[in-house]
Write a protein that binds this DNA or RNA. Sequence first.
DNA 1: GTCTATAGACAGATAGAC
DNA 2: GTCTATCTGTCTATAGAC
Lengths: 197, 197
Amino acid sequence: MYSDVMSTPERLISATRDLLWQRGYVGTSPKAIQRLAGAGQGSMYHHFSGKPALALAAIRRTADEMRGTAESALDGPGTPYERIAAYLLRERDVLRGCPVGRLTMDPEVTADETLRAPVDETLDWLRGRLTGIVAEGTAGGGLRPGLDASATAAAVVATVQGGYVLARATGSPAAFDAAVHGLLALLAPDDHRTPEV
Amino acid sequence: MYSDVMSTPERLISATRDLLWQRGYVGTSPKAIQRLAGAGQGSMYHHFSGKPALALAAIRRTADEMRGTAESALDGPGTPYERIAAYLLRERDVLRGCPVGRLTMDPEVTADETLRAPVDETLDWLRGRLTGIVAEGTAGGGLRPGLDASATAAAVVATVQGGYVLARATGSPAAFDAAVHGLLALLAPDDHRTPEV
DNA sequence: GTCTATAGACAGATAGAC
DNA sequence: GTCTATCTGTCTATAGAC
């Protein structure tokens, strides 16, 4: 249940976001959304045409929020290496996984162009943002020189997404941390010690 | 439908493996399994106690197969760097994702200790196997010296798992390839050029 | 071993009263 | 805007005949 000061559509969106994160699209039913939102059947179908529309609103909201969170770390002070480290090491609810990346494993999401678009755009934006920072870093900002900025950025995003997989497999965040620290060591030049962030 | 030379239990397991890969545990119904396997309701429940038992058999089979495939690449000839490259660059049906890693996003799988175990053990084995190879490689086998073998191995596995996420988000294998090549460049010493594998 | 019948609960809505 | 009733199909089995 969500705060009473939220409107019914807002509560429905919040509930859908939470369930999509925890159970995915296929595993999330209208009934479960209604129960969590404290809204009735008729109420939900009054505000949204159905499960796909509600999911789209929820996914867009989650994608926007993730973009803002990532930008906070990437836009911060410090060298390119430090900003990438800030992004990689920021606090996360590791065992819950990535609310955006998770959706790529949902066949109904990837099959629906409309639902997949916000997911694609968000991860694409993140890769592009990191590409710029890596390019800056290889030109004297604390990253190994000579790296392909775009490929390196893809490796950074992939390590995070895959770190969630390892963590959820083991049931502990340790594997995520290991992957991230492993990558940070690889990003630094040979003569550089990974700073304690 | 599967070959008639396979026994009914084998056809059921194969069908379950395929559906688990494509739709996950939550998205896979007994009815769909029966249809794909060409087996009747009663037949399925005669051989397996229910969906969880069938899923367990399917997951074990898939995990064993993945282990064998990975071992083929990791056990091959060449330097540690080359063996890791062989693993990373081996042919994959990238857009289908990892049949084992995928299961970690399924709440019913992670909630069930029995179902999660083979997933955990397989990824754990892979990390351990790579840790040994990385350790060998940092001692003169074409990898950057001074790396934490365990953390580096985690980064390698995470990059693969996350590469699938990126590929499925964009709908193209290109992002997977970018992440893998980005990582390979990072693994090589500064003076080393990534070989064309 | 395989088949059909049956069953209670849920999925994903639509209709119409209030 | 919200509520209750209703509906068709699916989910995950169980029972018992063949």
